[in-house]
Design a binder for these strands. Structure first.
Length: 844
RNA sequence: GGGCGGUUAGCUCAGUCUGGCUAGAGCGCUCGCCUCACACGCGAGAGGUCACAGGUUCAAGUCCCGUACCGCCCACCA
């Protein structure tokens, strides 16, 4: 073919040009005629589209793309879908802020309502359905921005296989799997204390908790024995004394033996509570006696459950103390309680401290402390514990058999890097409850159930009404169960729809089933599942990775993938963890515009697997330089002739020696990729390529500009080497390699075959000859540099001293060496390696 | 409180699994060079007691023990 090598090659515009071409040509389209063993399938993480874009979004995805491209070139048919995680709280929160709205489920749907141009201020309330419409509207906009970024970065995903966790197919998959979990008894509902976010008004799961160090104070408070003597406890939550159901001490604690079995009365409220024994009570903490409240913390829940204590809750779901005086309080106590009614816990705490001080039940001043307090990871106020009915999926926390099976799955999974597996193991070993999947929110996949209401108006939660699979997905608040009429909704003798949605992880834990169309396309499913790799961040091992493992284990009895590749954290340029709340988020688009996609990809590929990496424009500059070097090197390598020369024309020693080194590079890069170490593969290719341009190209340049078989040998070797380098770099620098490939090759480099050393093994020889010539050339360059003369300066005769072996190797490339060094001739002697030259005007 | 990862040149990082010439790269810095692929370039140079302390070994950046600091994860908040 005629070559179309530009005079001034540039990186500008390559992203757009090739993104469009790849789309037109279907370069990355999945060919579903391939069988499972021919397919390499990737369970791509669906990014949270309602979050802001930052470099963390780029880092892992680019690394994964290198695997996709390597496997594709290695002959696999790559199944590489892309999804968006758009359901759940992050989207709701973004919609609230973006439009200035809040969801009030009691309002009727307003068909006239349209998205506000600007955020309402003050916030207006809208119906649930209007709110959900806004969620869909905004996530679609967000998804366009993400797709644009992925395309600009050159991710080789098949955009025909994209999904959103809120789309109909995802909802159907999620609901169908939930119903199967229900049918097998793996999903169940239970009325129990749960951790509750008072602002978001929803239950949260163990995996969504985080501890934050908060200031607090130990209050030393007197309860009273029957003889009137005080017994002191220490508490950081004196406001919960009205919720106290018992005092507890360690059964071994000698100080309190006589009290076990007796009762004491609480200060101010004068409620009689037992003193009980439990081994969780720590004699070292406080006075050794703790008060048990329903519920101040998760230990209270444990004590309450294991000691079968009564429930005396006062904190409501809005986080305030209930206004009615609790029925277990006497009239006098109710008068005290009225001081607390309607307050938030921190307000009630101050009030109680005052009251206790007045009554003389507070011993000394409260001691200020810092202690860890449980928060919802997205929340702003401490979690409270309220009792409510919730749905759970078994995860092994209460079933040692299942827990063992899931631990074994973690062992079976191939982790990259390996040390990440301990995070999984520790999480599974530390589980303290089944997976709470229901959320009291609006935008998400609904719990697909209704419950019968008996004639006296009681809801029968134990016998949910289940929809047929064909009807999924359903919204129980608008669909009517079989055998009922809409008029029977919420009526005695009728039904009630489950008002809750499932947590986003309950759906995203099914990404293999969603992308593989487990529920409606068994043919595709069997070609892609179990999937090959699950790439993801280390922070969501306990959530996404674990939950996906649970769902696949329960349904299919297998691991959902063979390998998990865990990327590192992105740190900001000052090596701090990037976080929206710290305001140090670096967004990718300006960097891409400044340095180019290849440069940003290069930076991402320089981060080792699993290693935390700082945003570093210096590294991006190196990547840009490499991409430009490829353009220019290619221009030289294929600029001599339009003909494709058969490799058999490669006869000259340095040409063959170069290929021997290249074969080694190919084998290093291939080995690294097989170990999922893209960074090492890039390093090998890069090191080799720079040596190629710096030494090999300089050594053969003069010969290449000549004529005859020796020149043809160089032309052929340059062509062959370029072809190999383009393919080695293609996974990392997809645009520039494709651009150069298009100058002289048909088709896409990304569908070209990954290089193997066998391609030129029969031509490669004289390993070491190129290295020896380079070493001599290096000495000459140093001499010229020391003499401060041009590299083009003539050096006269070269006197090379070296071992017999070295001399022999140097002799093979002597002609090229003389030309590159601009020397007249060369003489050899044996001894310690050295090079002398006759520099003409060394004074200049 | 438990665990994981890290600490190598001014900066960003390789090298540690599998111990072995004089510890590498790029950036930055210094000094040169417009050499017909590339000045968005090319060549050369300076720069490191490999966090600290002990141990194993003929030999330790690399293996073992401990300490400090940084980051992250987990933990029942009395």
């Amino acid at each position: 073919m005629t070559r179309n090598v530009p005079d001034k090659p540039t990186l500008d515009g390559l992203e757009t040009k090739w993104d469009e071409r790849w789309e037109e040509d279907g370069t990355y389209r999945f060919d579903r005629s391939k069988t499972r063993d021919e397919v390499f399938s990737i369970d791509t993480p669906p990014p949270t589209v309602s979050g802001s874009l930052h470099m963390g979004s780029v880092f892992g995805y680019v690394q994964t793309d290198t695997h996709a491209r390597y496997r594709r070139m290695s002959g696999k048919e790559v199944f590489y879908p892309m999804g968006w995680d758009d359901n759940g709280l992050p989207t709701e929160r973004r919609v609230q802020n973006y439009y200035g709205v809040s969801c009030d489920p009691s309002l009727p749907y307003d068909s006239e309502f349209s998205a506000p141009e600007a955020a309402h201020d003050p916030v207006i309330s809208i119906s649930r359905r209007n709110f959900i419409e806004l969620c869909h509207l905004l996530t679609q906009e967000d998804e366009k921005v993400f797709e644009e970024l992925w395309r600009t970065l050159g991710l080789s995903v098949d955009w025909n296989h994209s999904y959103a966790t809120i789309d109909e197919h995802s909802q159907r998959t999620s609901q169908k799997m939930f119903l199967r979990n229900l049918a097998r008894g793996e999903a169940y509902s239970q009325e129990a204390p749960v951790l509750w976010d008072v602002d978001f008004q929803t239950a949260v799961a163990q995996a969504e908790l985080e501890d934050r160090e908060k200031g607090g104070a130990y209050h030393k408070v007197a309860f009273h024995k029957t003889d009137g003597e005080p017994i002191y406890i220490e508490t950081s939550r004196p406001e919960l004394i009205c919720s106290c159901v018992a005092l507890v001490a360690n059964p071994e604690d000698e100080r309190y033996q006589s009290l076990f079995g007796s009762t004491v009365t609480s200060p101010l409220f004068d409620v009689e509570v037992p003193v009980v024994a439990h081994e969780l009570a720590d004699p070292e903490k406080g006075t050794g006696v703790a008060m048990i409240c329903t519920f101040g913390d998760t230990t209270d829940v444990t004590w309450w459950r294991e000691l079968a204590l009564p429930t005396r809750a006062v904190i409501q779901r809005d986080g305030r103390f209930q206004t009615e005086s609790p029925e277990w309080l006497s009239d006098d106590a109710a008068a005290v309680y009225s001081e607390l009614a309607g307050l938030f816990p921190n307000q009630a705490r101050r009030k109680m401290a005052e009251l206790l001080a007045e009554s003389g039940d507070l011993d000394g001043e409260p001691e200020q402390i810092m202690h860890p307090v449980k928060f919802y990871e997205k929340g702003d106020r401490p979690l409270e514990i309220v009792t409510s009915r919730q749905w759970y999926i078994r995860n092994g926390a209460r079933d040692s058999g299942l827990r063992t099976e899931l631990l074994e799955k973690g062992e079976e999974l191939h982790w990259v890097p390996g040390f990440m597996s301990v995070r999984y193991r520790h999480w599974v070993e530390g589980l303290n409850g089944d997976w709470l999947i229901s959320r009291q929110r609006f935008f998400g996949v609904g719990v697909p159930l209704w419950y019968p209401i008996n004639d006296s108006g009681d809801v029968d939660y134990d016998h949910p009404v289940v929809p047929d699979d064909e009807l999924l997905p359903i919204d129980p608040s608008s669909h009517v169960p079989a055998g009922y009429q809409e008029s029977q909704r919420d009526q005695p003798g009728g039904f009630i729809g489950d008002p809750d949605i499932m947590d986003t992880w309950a759906t995203s834990s099914l990404t293999p089933q969603i992308v593989g169309h487990w529920d409606d396309d068994a043919d595709l499913w069997n070609r892609v599942f179990p999937m090959d790799i699950r790439p993801q961040g280390p922070d969501i091992i306990r959530t996404w990775l674990f939950a996906t493992t649970v769902r696949a284990h329960l349904e299919h009895g297998v691991l959902p993938w063979g390998t998990a590749t865990i990327n590192g954290w992105i740190l900001d340029p000052d090596r701090k963890k990037m976080s929206k709340s710290w305001g140090n988020v670096v967004t990718p688009m300006p960097l891409i515009e400044e340095f180019g996609s290849e440069a940003v990809r290069y930076w991402a590929c320089n981060g080792r697997p699993g290693v935390d990496t700082a945003v570093d424009t210096g590294v991006m500059k190196i990547g840009r330089r490499l991409a430009i070097k490829i353009l220019n090197g290619a221009r030289f390598a294929i600029g001599f002739t339009d003909a494709d020369i058969d490799p058999s024309a490669i006869t000259q020693p340095l040409d063959r020696s170069m290929l021997a080194g290249l074969a080694e590079t190919v084998s290093q890069a291939t080995g690294a990729f097989e170990d999922y170490d893209y960074a090492r593969a890039l390093e090998a290719a890069e090191r080799s390529f720079w040596a190629w341009t710096d030494d090999y190209v300089e050594l053969v340049k003069t010969r290449a500009y000549g004529e005859g078989p020796a020149a043809t040998s160089a032309h052929a070797a340059l062509q062959l080497a370029l072809s190999v380098y383009l393919r080695l770099f293609a996974p990392f620098l997809p645009f520039v390699t494709e651009e150069v490939w298009s100058w002289w090759r048909e088709g896409s480099v990304h569908r070209a075959i990954w290089p193997v050393a066998d391609e030129f093994a029969n031509i490669a020889s004289d390993p070491g000859a190129l290295e020896a010539a380079s070493k001599v050339l290096g000495s000459v360059r140093r001499a010229k540099s020391d003499a401060k003369v041009s590299m083009r300066a003539e050096v006269g005769r070269l006197k090379v001293t070296g071992s017999a072996d070295e001399v022999e190797l140097i002799r093979r490339g002597a002609d090229d060496l003389l030309a590159a060094a601009r020397a007249t001739d060369i003489v050899y002697s044996e001894g310690e390696f050295s090079v002398e030259s006759e520099l003409a005007n060394s004074s200049n």
